[in-house]
Design a protein around this nucleic acid. Structure first.
Lengths: 104, 104
DNA sequence: TTTATAGGAAACCAAACAGTTTCATGTCAA
DNA sequence: TTGACATGAAACTGTTTGGTTTCCTATAAA
């Protein structure tokens, strides 16, 4: 679950689309692959990469595999973007800093 | 400069490293490639991909090519992450929304 | 206890990617 | 105006990636 695994996982449009789908709730592999034109094994590979990046979790339920979004993994990306945000939006950066201070 | 071009650009660790370097100020190709073990043409290719994603701009100055960070391009990524941030941090999401409202 | 359903695994493929080497071009400085 | 320097461009290469097809396993339902 390195930083690179996360950036790799979100670099593909299909995988970002799957994340959006899962933001609406859990889905089985069948449910997910039904939404795409590619074959089921192709979707399986995308899900594996998302799981390796920590962006989703998977559990078995009977003969199904249920996939759930793990959005906290995106904190890594948020932090990375936030470092650069200071160069384009001082106000937002300051507010974010305030929020982080407040958390401690 | 599609969303995909941006996500592609930031998916490579060398390119993210170059962005960090440029956050400190403009750099020529020579300055940049001196920091990496790979050859200059390899760095050139990375810079081209960053440029295509709108993350850097390039200008000629004499025989040099000066590269400058364009962090605003990361707003696209920030927006995308922010959509998911509502699922992990309500407080931060609300504050961000307030900032956006305030901008209009 | 068959049969249908949900998924896993392996072998394969073409295209994209990250890198190299080699050579050409433009600009600055003696 | 010659030499050094900064870069561009093209051809090539090995590996990764996103996809396929085929076959196998496990669970649920008839």
């Amino acid at each position: 679950m390195t930083e690179q695994m996360i950036f790799r996982a979100i670099s593909d449009p299909t995988r970002r689309s799957i994340m959006a789908m899962l933001s609406d709730g859990e889905r089985s592999l069948n449910d997910i692959s039904a939404q795409y034109e590619m074959t089921r094994p192709a979707v399986t590979k995308h899900l594996k990469i998302l799981e390796q990046g920590g962006l989703i979790s998977v559990r078995s339920q009977g003969r199904e595999r249920i996939h759930r979004l793990q959005p906290e993994a995106l904190k890594t990306v948020a932090d990375w973007v936030n470092f650069f945000s200071q160069f384009w939006d001082e106000k937002l950066a300051n507010l974010k800093q305030a929020v982080e201070m407040d958390d401690e």
